[in-house]
Computed example of a mutant assay.
Amino acid sequence: MSFWPEFFIIASVHLMAVASPGPDFAIVLRYAVRYGIKVALAASIGIGCAILLHVAYSLIGIGVLIKTTPWLFRLLSLIAAVYLAYIGIQALRATATDNINNIATDHGLNQASLSLKKAFIAGFITNGLNPKATLFFLSLFAVVISASTPFEYKLIYGLYMALATAAWFSFLSVILTRSKVRNFLLAKGYWFDRAMGLLLLALAIHLIISSFT
């Protein structure tokens, strides 16, 4: 298969996967609402960098080990579930601001309460430990990408998906923090926090159940 047809197939499949709601979207939405654009962008870049992790183990063959070792995949799923549950519980503890006139001040304090480094790490871990992302890349490199495709092409595909993922979530971060959207989200942000908390807990429960079925 030549480069461009294969690339367009991969780009299309990746676009559908990255645009679907999941832990990555949940954490970017929560950080955009609660902490602002810089923190959300840091998490988005972390998510994009985690794609390189999936690409790396797919290229060097560790993905085959994960796929053919059920207990290892189950362990990764449980670790991911615990982490998502932790974030979900933190989100459920969100409280309303005392006065809508203090929203801007409260927002500034929230930004200071989470460093860009921590946001980056949270985004990286959320995507890096996501079993759905693991399965996606295992399937992509095993089925969609031809075995005869040169290593250099596969590397280009991986770099593209990492950049495209970071760009997509960065775009969402910008949209979610635009003036009108931002003011609305800040006023009702704790409800979004709690909703995202429930979603993250539901995802964690789903991972635990699916790990033992």
Rank of each mutant, 00 (worst) to 15 (best):
L172R: 02
Y83M: 13
G61A: 05
S12D: 05
V144H: 11
K117E: 06
P23I: 01
I51H: 12
T97R: 11
A104H: 08
G36H: 00
F141R: 13
V55E: 04
I125P: 07
V39G: 06
G63L: 05
A91M: 15
T165S: 00
I10Q: 07
G197I: 03
Y83H: 03
I62N: 03
I89T: 07
R93W: 03
V13T: 13
G63F: 09
G48F: 02
H14T: 00
W191I: 00
I103D: 13
V33S: 15
V33K: 05
Y83W: 10
L138T: 14
A91S: 15
A166D: 01
G108L: 12
P21W: 00
I125L: 12
F136C: 05
L76P: 01
K132F: 08
S77N: 11
N102I: 07
N99Q: 13
R194C: 00
A56W: 11
L29Y: 03
S44P: 06
A19C: 14
I45R: 02
I121R: 08
L207W: 12
V82W: 12
A119Y: 02
A166N: 03
N110A: 15
I209K: 12
D106F: 04
K188H: 15
F151G: 06
F212Q: 01
A80T: 11
A104C: 11
S179L: 10
T95W: 05
I209G: 02
N102W: 06
V181H: 13
V64H: 14
Y190L: 00
Y57R: 04
H54R: 08
A26L: 10
I27F: 02
F192P: 07
I9N: 10
A81T: 06
D106P: 02
A142I: 14
I175T: 09
L138H: 11
Y31V: 09
S2T: 07
A166W: 03
V28G: 01
F7I: 01
A94W: 05
L129H: 00
G63W: 09
A187L: 06
G48R: 04
R178Q: 14
T95F: 00
A32E: 12
L176V: 12
L41E: 13
G108M: 12
P21R: 00
A81C: 10
I87N: 03
A32L: 12
S173H: 10
H107V: 06
F192I: 10
M16W: 10
M1L: 11
P150L: 02
I47H: 05
G123I: 06
A11I: 07
I51P: 08
L78H: 09
F120D: 08
A122N: 15
T105G: 14
I175S: 12
A94E: 13
I66W: 14
G123Y: 05
D106T: 14
V18S: 04
A17C: 01
